[in-house]
Computed example of a mutant assay.
Amino acid sequence: MPSVPDQLAELPYAHLLIPHTGPLRRDERYDTVHFDGSAPAGPELAGPANGATFLECAFTGVELSGTKFRQARFNEVWVQGSRWIAVDCAETEWQDAGFVGTVLAGLTCYGSAVRRVVFRQCKLEAVNLRGATLRDVVFEDCLLRDVDFGDAKLTEVSFPGSTLEEVRLAGATLRQVDLRGAARLGLADGPNGLRGAVLSTVQLFELAPQFAQALGITVKD
């Protein structure tokens, strides 16, 4: 599991961070910048920041609504205690990033590349990850509700302690996707898309009626 700290001071680049000033800009490069929602004036994050690059940046207590990050790149970024609502993250690239105690709702993330990213104690609701590529990603103690992985490619993805509700996997390609630690498996498409996943025996029994229905099997005692 990728290592992600819970506190800002634990970041290896914490001592280099500088406060963000001014609006977000397209194609801008943000290097060791701290976007802090608790700052006296608060950061101006209306955007758009399409095509921008964020390197070793931190977002703490930040509320984003409708901000545009399309085709932006996030490398070694840490997001804590924030709310990202209806944010456009389509075709973005994420690598070595961490989300801690953050709400992500109504996000557009289709076609994105997500690598070595940890979501810890986060709430993801109505997040569109269709056609995205996820590799070495961990959803730890999260709530995933109405998250769409349709036609996505998931490799070495795990869900320890997470609750899945109305999650869609139809058309997805799964390789070493570990669902055994999930607290609940609520799959909108039933067993469709589970090829390549690892399930526990208990989960297999819980999904048995859906497998039978998908195969046209009637079970009677």
Rank of each mutant, 00 (worst) to 15 (best):
P160T: 08
A212T: 12
R25Q: 06
S65C: 09
G22F: 04
G101P: 02
A182W: 11
A170Q: 12
L11I: 02
G81S: 13
R180H: 10
D6K: 15
P48M: 07
R116P: 04
G66V: 00
V77M: 08
D88Q: 07
G181T: 01
R29S: 12
V127D: 00
V100Q: 14
P23A: 08
V77P: 00
D146M: 07
S112L: 04
S65L: 14
L16P: 00
P43Q: 03
V147H: 04
H20K: 10
T53F: 14
R175W: 14
S200D: 00
V33F: 07
F119T: 02
L154Y: 09
N128P: 04
V79Y: 11
R175H: 10
T173E: 07
V100Y: 14
W84S: 01
A41Q: 13
W94I: 07
I217C: 11
A39K: 09
Q71D: 10
A132P: 03
A113Q: 15
A86I: 05
C57L: 06
L8I: 09
T92G: 15
P5H: 08
R115I: 03
R83G: 00
V157R: 04
L124D: 01
L204T: 10
E206A: 15
P23V: 11
A46E: 12
Y110L: 09
C109D: 00
Q7E: 12
D136E: 13
D221I: 10
G131A: 01
G111C: 01
A49S: 05
D96S: 13
V118E: 09
R130P: 00
D148A: 05
R145F: 11
L215N: 13
D136P: 08
Q176P: 04
E10D: 14
